[in-house]
Structure formats: structure tokens, C-alpha cells
């Protein structure tokens, strides 16, 4: 062990690290961003009210609870079916039904907020009955039947993530790789036109991207019994196609000028990371504070995962999926057109 060798090799490793912006980003930037975003989503829940939907038909319960609820519980009325779905989607924390004497609280035990909501509801119910009355323990039901579990929530998110990767990575990385390896120049010198090339390349990548979502879906259905509403297939197919087009266009846009894979990887981090975290793939976007809502709602991945999720839970037939589909297709058209203009062979 020679001290000078240790010093020089050590210094080399250090310089190498500092000269690799990617490494610095993943060791400092990434965890801090994760902490910030997840903190916003899951942080001060105690300070925020638990959101509870009282099912239609139990309005009496709503009226009894309202005056004693306080700031900790936020109560609204919704239909039983919608309330159930919102619970699954994570936009409310509990559903209350039954009567003051025989209350039923439905929660999703896999969610971190469920227990707090349950406790708060119990104490609100106690106050509503008056301190002197006999305590009545509400019946607790959990939504762990197919359709209400985390896996049911997660699967559309994974499909969204998959389509995002297929588009941004599958198109973007490959185009830049072809540019770096001088392959694009070789095509440039042939009579193949720019638009012809881009259309052909995008189409074939789009076709490739269409299959994996259905494989993921089939796996979820077979392995975990994830339910797919019978009428949902058309809507799912349309959304998958629109999502693949949107992210392929996005990938092409990112790759249109990048001259090195490092440049591209930087661009990909910038756009993919926010979508991983705020695209509604792993947890509901409703968790973000109201001020951030316009931002997370503006992410294409949010449109896709929300659309797929509603479709799978049966809330959406093809027609009802059109806003998400239209947004995705518009995004696809905009990014592809822009990419076509910016594209450089070399």
C-alpha cells in the first residue's frame, strides 16, 4: 500500500464522480426530489382532515355528524357506488353508511391514512351520540375484494409507466443511438425523406409498444384476479394506443436534436422523473396539495393512468374515455410535429 497511489487513485475516482453529472444527480438530486415530492404527498396528513363520504340514503347520519365533525373530518355525501370507487382511487379516506346506532365504516387498510380516518370517525360518532350514551363500535369493513386493493390501483399505473418507457426510451434512445453511431447519416444520404423515415420509425415503435400493456394486464388478471369491467376493453385499447402515440412523440421530440446519449439521458430524467412521481402511477394524485393540482393534472402520464384506471373499474366506456384520449392524441400530434421540425440527421 503506497500512500501516493492511494491518494492519486482516490483523487481520480473523486474527479470522475464529479465529472459525471448523472452520478451526482442520482446521489443528491434524486433522493432529495423524492423526499420533497413524497413529503408533499404523504407528509403532513395529520394536519389535513380525513375525507369521508357518507353514502346517499344515510343523509340523517350526515346531518348528525356534521355539527360535531370539527376540522379533522371532512364530510360529504355521495352515491354508494361512486364513494366506493373514490375510496379505491384514494381520493377519499373512508366511506360511512348505516345509521348512528349501527354505523359501517369502509376503509382500504393498505393505505397509510386508513387507520387515522377510522379513529377520527369513531371519535366523531361518539360525540354525535353524546358522551352519556353507550358507546357503539362501528362495524369496520375493508375494501380488499378485487377492485379495491392496491394491486388493482397499481396495475393501470404500471401500464402507464410501461407506455411512457416504451415511447420515451424506445424511440428517444434508439434515435440518438442511431445518430451517435452515424447510422442516421447513412440513411440521410439515401433518397429516404425525413418525414418518411420518422413516420416509419415511429409507427413500428408504436406497434411494438402496444403489446406489453396487454401482457401486464393479463398477468394482473391471472395472478391477482384484477378485475376488468366487461365493457372496458374498447376504452383500454383506445387509451393504450393514444398513450403509446403520445409518449413516442415525446421521445422523438427529446431525441430530435440530442447529439449524445448523455444529453438525452439528462433530458429523459427531467421529464420522466416528475411523471414517475406525480403521474398517478403509484399513488393517487389527490394526495398532493391543492396548489400543486394544476401541475400534476397537466402531466400526460396522469391523463393516461387516470383514464385507464377509470376504464378498468368500469366507470368508462369508449365515449367516456374521450377526454383523456383526446388530450393524449393532441399531445402526440403536437410533440410529433415539433419533433419533425426540430429533427436533425447529424
Amino acid at each position: 500500500m503506497r500512500a501516493r497511489v492511494l491518494r492519486e487513485v482516490g483523487a481520480m475516482a473523486l474527479r470522475d464522480y464529479l465529472r459525471t453529472p448523472d452520478a451526482v444527480f442520482w446521489t443528491y438530486g434524486f433522493p432529495l426530489i423524492m423526499a420533497l415530492v413524497l413529503g408533499l404527498a404523504f407528509g403532513e396528513r395529520g394536519a389535513q382532515p380525513s375525507r369521508v363520504a357518507v353514502v346517499a340514503g344515510a343523509e340523517v347520519l350526515h346531518a348528525q355528524l356534521e355539527p360535531v365533525a370539527g376540522d379533522a373530518v371532512q364530510i360529504e355525501i355521495d352515491t354508494a357506488e361512486r364513494a366506493q370507487r373514490r375510496l379505491v382511487l384514494g381520493s377519499i379516506d373512508a366511506v360511512l353508511s348505516g345509521s348512528l346506532d349501527a354505523p359501517v365504516v369502509t376503509i382500504d387498510p393498505s393505505r397509510p391514512d386508513a387507520e387515522l380516518a377510522e379513529l377520527r370517525l369513531e371519535s366523531a360518532l361518539r360525540r354525535a351520540r353524546g358522551e352519556l350514551a353507550d358507546a357503539v363500535q362501528p362495524r369496520i369493513e375493508s375494501v380488499d375484494e378485487p377492485g379495491g386493493r392496491y394491486i388493482d390501483f397499481l396495475l393501470p399505473g404500471l401500464i402507464g409507466i410501461n407506455l411512457m418507457g416504451a415511447g420515451i426510451y424506445g424511440v428517444g434512445y434508439n434515435v440518438v443511438q442511431m445518430r451517435v453511431k452515424n447510422l442516421l447519416r447513412r440513411i440521410w444520404v439515401t433518397p429516404v425523406g425525413r418525414v418518411e423515415f420518422l413516420v416509419a420509425f415511429l409507427s413500428s415503435r408504436l406497434l411494438l409498444a402496444l403489446l406489453p400493456p396487454f401482457v401486464i394486464l393479463a398477468f394482473g388478471m391471472l395472478a391477482f384476479g384484477v378485475p376488468v369491467a366487461p365493457g372496458a376493453w374498447a376504452a383500454i385499447a383506445v387509451l393504450v394506443l393514444a398513450g403509446a402515440a403520445a409518449f413516442s412523440g415525446f421521445g422523438l421530440l427529446l431525441a430530435s436534436r440530442a447529439r449524445t446519449l448523455e444529453t438525452l439521458s439528462g433530458l429523459m430524467n427531467v421529464v420522466m422523473l416528475p411523471m414517475w412521481l406525480c403521474g398517478g402511477a403509484f399513488f393517487s394524485n389527490d394526495r398532493f396539495p391543492a396548489v400543486l393540482q394544476p401541475l400534476v393534472r397537466a402531466l400526460p402520464l396522469t391523463w393516461l393512468t387516470d383514464g385507464l384506471r377509470s376504464a378498468m373499474l368500469g366507470a368508462t366506456d369508449v365515449l367516456a374515455a374521450w377526454p383523456a384520449t383526446a388530450l393524449l392524441l393532441a399531445f402526440a400530434a403536437a410533440t410529433t410535429t415539433l419533433a419533425g421540425r426540430l429533427f436533425r440527421w447529424a
Binding site: K181, N182, R185, R186, V189, P191, G193
Partner: peptide
Amino acid sequence: PRAIRQRIGVSLQETRPDAR
């Protein structure tokens, strides 16, 4: 440009020996 490309053939200078 296309009219010219249809009538020419190009072999570029080899830049990287480790291409695809």
C-alpha cells in the same frame, strides 16, 4: 435534394470501428 439522392450512391468515411 431527393432528385439528386436518387442518382447518387454514398459510402461515408468509417469513423468508429465498433459500430453496430
